[in-house]
Write a protein that binds this DNA or RNA. Sequence first.
DNA 1: GATGAATGAGCCTTCATTCAT
DNA 2: GATGAATGAAGGCTCATTCAT
Lengths: 190, 190, 190, 190
Amino acid sequence: MEKITPILNAARDLFAEKGFEQTPIADIAKKAGVAGGTIIYHFKSKENLLFILIRQILYSLYRHAQDEISTATNGLNAVESYIRAFFSFLDSRGSDFKVLLKTNPFEVINLQEHPNADVKLIFDRYLDLLVDAIKRGQADGSIRDGQPAELGKFIFAALFGSAQLKVVFGDSSTNLRDSALHFARAGLKK
Amino acid sequence: MEKITPILNAARDLFAEKGFEQTPIADIAKKAGVAGGTIIYHFKSKENLLFILIRQILYSLYRHAQDEISTATNGLNAVESYIRAFFSFLDSRGSDFKVLLKTNPFEVINLQEHPNADVKLIFDRYLDLLVDAIKRGQADGSIRDGQPAELGKFIFAALFGSAQLKVVFGDSSTNLRDSALHFARAGLKK
Amino acid sequence: MEKITPILNAARDLFAEKGFEQTPIADIAKKAGVAGGTIIYHFKSKENLLFILIRQILYSLYRHAQDEISTATNGLNAVESYIRAFFSFLDSRGSDFKVLLKTNPFEVINLQEHPNADVKLIFDRYLDLLVDAIKRGQADGSIRDGQPAELGKFIFAALFGSAQLKVVFGDSSTNLRDSALHFARAGLKK
Amino acid sequence: MEKITPILNAARDLFAEKGFEQTPIADIAKKAGVAGGTIIYHFKSKENLLFILIRQILYSLYRHAQDEISTATNGLNAVESYIRAFFSFLDSRGSDFKVLLKTNPFEVINLQEHPNADVKLIFDRYLDLLVDAIKRGQADGSIRDGQPAELGKFIFAALFGSAQLKVVFGDSSTNLRDSALHFARAGLKK
DNA sequence: GATGAATGAGCCTTCATTCAT
DNA sequence: GATGAATGAAGGCTCATTCAT
């Protein structure tokens, strides 16, 4: 029971470092100071371990954005907070984020299967945070007209693309963040 | 010798569909109508087959962008052409693109090792096309000031993020393209 | 202590349904509403649990035959009662019988090892019931001459073969019983 | 390709000796002088290897009975030949037979699944040989009236029960055969 | 008596790669 | 150039059993 956290931590680190497929359960076990069978005992399968991990990470990301947005004074400001939150998460919890990007979670995990559905759900919620900020901005006059869902999706895409650039090629997240803020403002302002 | 093309085609389709790790050489062999040994005989290793494939695809993408840009009348126009080229490639050669996104090529392939270096090279060239367009725009007055490399990287990130959204969740590439054009114009124009 | 019966019942059902090897202790535990460790605690090992079960079942079979024979008026009649008892047991306690046939108990259980010896003992006693009936028939003139042990063994073999046919292929036990009675009478009568 | 026979031979011996579940593929490989992977390469799965083996054995048994019956002069004679063939097979190819009895093939092998269907088919054919002999006897007057299918099934059951007695407890097949012949004659003759 | 988390040996299977033909 | 039988290391998973509580 108290082995669950060490396992999750070991898995996070190894998945982030070498990827899901390249990480044998035995390695996780060794790093977590646990027997191989213990991992399956608690997580049923290696894939499910990934799923649990992804859900945790996604939820943290969601909460982090939510916190940041909560103090925004208007819609555009909320979008900026959302972007800042994304990059600060990326910086402070880079290892977590690598898991997200290195495992193509939505490929490895079959989203059709019931228990995985909530990963998609959290993901959607996280996107909604951005779309809602845009709607708010359109209501309070800080953001121009346009379909909030489409504007949101594109910004979202840009954020994940930036993260990939940082994670894969080591690009500076500061520069990417500033560019993201710049383009978002330019594209959204009235 | 004449077995090489069928092998590449089969590999492309299968890598696109199920991913690199999930595709056994035996499956490629069967789909290509070839013996398993033949693939190793021609490509040395499975990883190298992926490398060859990625290089081909990346090069096509590069040429496609180059073609599109060649008729641009100014820098901003060239950037727009670059974006359009990206999405038209994504639409017409979706399977190729999936290979790029599903294999995290820059993870699987160790870019430090010599023969793989040119994948990174083509990749950089492709990015340079965009950066050069921005520089051109700054020279001809169609694009505002700012560091071309950073502006370019962000647009680039947004494009790949969009592709991922399309490939993974099936989002409309038309909407994503229009948003990309919108944000690029807004962020680059004087 | 009061957990023993539920465990035995669950084990009986599962062994009958899926066989000994195919039934994990965990499944028995769940079905019995008991913890996994409890089963080992009470039965020492999975194999020993099977052994206890087999002994119970065999003893029931033995008692059932004994009861039926007790009212027989002569030897041939006793043999017929024995056969009828076998099939009525097979019908009324099919699940028990399946355990016997599905586990090849005499393979799984090493009869050389001391505590298991009494399974073989009960088995022999059960066979003796039949052999004794034949002897009795030879004494009272209802059964022809011949080696009782051999005649008995063959009838015995036929009964177990019939049970297997019923259990595996679902053949009618009524037909099999009538045939058994027919052949036994024909082969034993003077 | 030339490894298939050694594998089948090794599997036959080991399944006969220790049973299907108790025989790791690695043991078969070692005994066959082959790599572990080779077995799966040729037989797809351990279960399928058993299936192939069972089919071979069953077919031999079938052919053996067919040969023996072919010279019978009448129906009753054919039944006797069938019984003799059974026991001579049991004696000369005891190891093969043990595989049949030790694996409860009809349990391990899911008869519903297509490729396994023919095991049941051969099995039925083998039984039909006996039923047809009984019909022939009823036609030529050497065998009394009665439902051939039921009479056949019972004799069949007796034969398999006898084999089990021999295999498990080492009973003499000569005695069992003579008893079988005795009871069959007594039960079938006019 | 009972629990259930934890163990770790064991097993089947996968699969990239080799090599004799 | 091409084949495909053969390999064997590697990995995910099962499960009877142990033991601290």
